Amino acid sequence: MATVGTGRRARTRRGTAVRSLLALCLAAGLAAGCTVPGDPDDGRGPSQRSPGTSGREPGPAVLAVKIDNARGARPHTGVEDADVVYVEQVEGGLSRLMAVYATRLPDRVGPVRSAREADLELLRQFDRPVLAYSGAQSKLKPLIEAAPLTAVTPESFSGVYTRGAGRPAPHNLYLRPGRLMDRPAGAEALTTGFRFGRAPSGGTPEVSRTVRYPAARFTFTWSAGDGRWLVSLDGSPALTSDGGRLAPATVVVQYVTVRPSKFQDFLGNNTPYTETVGSGEALVLRGGKAYEARWNRPGAEDGTTFTTEEGERMNFARGQVWVVYAKAP
């Protein structure tokens, strides 16, 4: 019987094995479940994952990562490489990020935190996405198991996570995408419904826009020199772990219904549910201007389309897109 070493070569072999197993699971549509060996470095045994399937033909899988946005979790790592960043309200009026990767995979992403019920509806627009998260309420776990996605947690795919130094748990857990996937899925996997191209006519000059949650604040300031919207979180510049600035090309403030869910955190705070299926108003920021728009997502398996006030498709600027879900007035 072969033994498993603990050095660099052994970890490389394990990373390759995990990526290969995940690829096989995705190719098989996850119909029979996937057994993944525990990390030899942490002493855990095998874990098993048996999510449901959507019935659609499997396509390339995007990687979605739930990211902590508490003050102690900043600066973030790898968020600047995401194609799309979704912002949602969670318990206590705070916020979390969902970073979606299709064209690039950073070395590390995080800090990684727990999933929410609304994430499952949001991710139905992608073909069997890979969802990396850490922790979920026990009542939510059956819903995650039944969802058409591959859940990657420290328990099920332990070898792809690492703890970072310099900050306390739970703000120090990071995903290593290279140990999970050999390459990014590609732009064709981004079935968001977004369209990119020239800006429409009109629009109102916009220097800065702030979106407020009960206990969180996002400000986007236009930088003509960078051709991007510089992000500030709770009044401070949103930096990357290497000292750069988070700066999307397009920001969408999408006005949605935010209602109480049937879940609560351990303090008894209700978990908000952000409804991303339906239609409503939106504000699109691109090129130093703000455009009034409408959004429409007929069903959970559909992407979201945006149209101008004149009814034409709204084009986004090429580059990273941030979608901030704000409670409709």
Rank of each mutant, 00 (worst) to 15 (best):
R8N: 12
R11Y: 11
R14W: 13
A32W: 13
A32S: 15
G33P: 03
T35I: 10
D41I: 09
G43S: 05
G45V: 07
G45R: 02
G52W: 03
S54P: 09
G59Q: 11
G59C: 10
A61K: 00
L63I: 00
A64I: 00
D68H: 05
N69Y: 07
G72R: 14
A73R: 06
H76T: 15
H76Q: 14
A82P: 01
V85Y: 02
E88I: 05
Q89M: 14
S95N: 08
L97T: 04
A99F: 00
T103H: 07
L105T: 00
L105S: 01
P106F: 00
D107C: 07
V109K: 02
V112D: 05
A118W: 11
L122E: 04
Q125K: 14
P129I: 03
L131G: 01
L131F: 06
S134T: 10
G135Y: 01
S138L: 15
L143K: 08
I144P: 00
I144T: 02
P148R: 01
A151R: 00
V152D: 01
V152I: 06
P154C: 04
E155G: 03
E155L: 07
G159D: 10
Y161M: 00
T162E: 15
A169T: 15
H171F: 13
H171W: 07
N172E: 12
N172G: 09
N172P: 04
L173Y: 02
R176E: 12
G178M: 04
R179E: 10
M181S: 04
D182G: 14
T192Q: 01
R195I: 11
P205H: 07
P205R: 03
P205N: 06
V207P: 09
S208I: 04
T210N: 04
V211P: 03
R212K: 12
P214L: 10
F220V: 01
W222S: 05
S223I: 05
G225A: 15
G225L: 12
D226H: 13
S232W: 08
G235C: 06
A238K: 03
T240M: 09
T240Q: 08
G244E: 12
R245E: 14
A249N: 08
Y255D: 13
Y255S: 12
Y255K: 13
V258Q: 12
V258K: 06
P260G: 15
P260C: 11
G268P: 13
G268E: 14
N269C: 11
N270T: 14
Y273A: 10
T276D: 11
G278M: 06
L283R: 06
L283M: 12
V284E: 00
G287F: 05
G288I: 02
Y291Q: 01
E292A: 13
P298G: 13
G299F: 14
E301S: 15
G303Q: 06
T305C: 13
F306V: 06
T308G: 14
E309H: 10
R313S: 15
M314K: 08
M314D: 09
V323G: 05
K327F: 10
